[in-house]
């Protein structure tokens, strides 16, 4: 009786200890965000950062946010990022659904070798393709447009792979039934399998969205016109112009650029975390 009590209390103590460790480390991870929001509300932080750091500014003001929004470039960059991201997501998800389905349910010559080629694209990084793609889009006069950011999304080895794995789990009997009714392959795909692909489509949309929204090196190369800058490009150019001065403005800008993504993440966290985990446990 006594020993079981002590085991229980030991267990409770270790639980509390675990919780505290997790909490402290969580606060450390969140500290940059908390400080960012605080400094963003501090007008004086543009001259020197408040030191020692404090959670609530001495004279809280929305001055920095006012400036960030008055300068139309942030909103413009949001519009640009949205156009690019939505188009890329639509293109990559639809082409990958088609290919993933064909690799899962199709019977055709060269299926294995073609799928191997798709897997090979996973190993090709962006850097060696940077210059030829730049000259390619330059030669057709599409530099400083959104096309170079959108069109290459048509191929995504990762999305095809995830999609194939999903369709592999769906039974072939659905196809056979529809075939007896005389439905063609496209009809079978659109009427029978696509309506069942909701979960994997959501995952693909989330992954494709994150990749496209955060893309930096390639947009940096093809977009010189500041009116076309996406959010990461605008942030980088702002940061390069001001370095570590204008802390208040920089932090307000960082807050405004991160906030929508964080809100989206908080609403969809279950799906986002699942998607990331799915793209990561592919080894099994």
């Amino acid at each position: 009786m006594n020993s079981s009590m002590s085991v229980k209390t030991m267990h409770r103590i270790s639980e509390i200890f675990k919780f505290l460790v997790l909490l402290i480390f969580g606060v450390i991870l969140m500290a940059p965000f908390i400080w960012m929001v605080s400094v963003g509300f501090d007008r004086t932080a543009n001259i020197t950062m408040p030191f020692p750091p404090r959670l609530i500014p001495e004279e809280p003001s929305s001055f920095n946010y006012g400036i960030v929004f008055e300068n139309g470039r942030l909103i413009q960059s949001y519009i640009n990022s949205t156009i690019v991201t939505v188009s890329s997501v639509v293109l990559s998800v639809s082409s990958s659904l088609l290919a993933g389905y064909a690799f899962s349910k199709g019977k055709f010559k060269g299926k294995k070798i073609l799928f191997f080629i798709v897997l090979c694209t996973l190993m090709i990084p962006m850097e060696p393709r940077l210059i030829p793609l730049y000259t390619l889009f330059n030669s057709v006069g599409l530099l400083n447009t959104f096309w170079p950011l959108i069109l290459p999304s048509i191929i995504s080895g990762m999305l095809i792979f995830l999609c194939k794995q999903f369709f592999d789990q769906l039974p072939d009997t659905l196809r056979e039934a529809a075939q007896i009714d005389g439905a063609g392959e496209f009809k079978i795909f659109f009427r029978v399998y696509l309506p069942l692909a909701g979960p994997i489509a959501a995952t693909m949309i989330i992954l494709s969205f994150i990749w496209s929204w955060n893309d930096f090196m390639w947009p940096l190369v093809v977009l010189n016109n500041i009116d076309l800058h996406t959010v990461p490009l605008y942030l980088a150019s702002f940061s390069q112009e001001n370095g570590s001065s204008l802390g208040g403005l920089t932090m307000a800008l960082a807050t405004v650029s991160i906030l929508p993504i964080i809100i989206l993440y908080l609403f969809l966290q279950r799906y986002i975390i699942q998607s990331i985990a799915l793209s990561g446990v592919k080894g099994e």
């Binding site: 950062m49 942030l235 980088a236 940061s239």
Partner: peptide
């Protein structure tokens, strides 16, 4: 959060 925004914050 995008690594670009994160780098911007870490500068401070």
């Amino acid at each position: 959060t995008s690594i670009v925004a994160a780098a911007m914050i870490f500068q401070f």
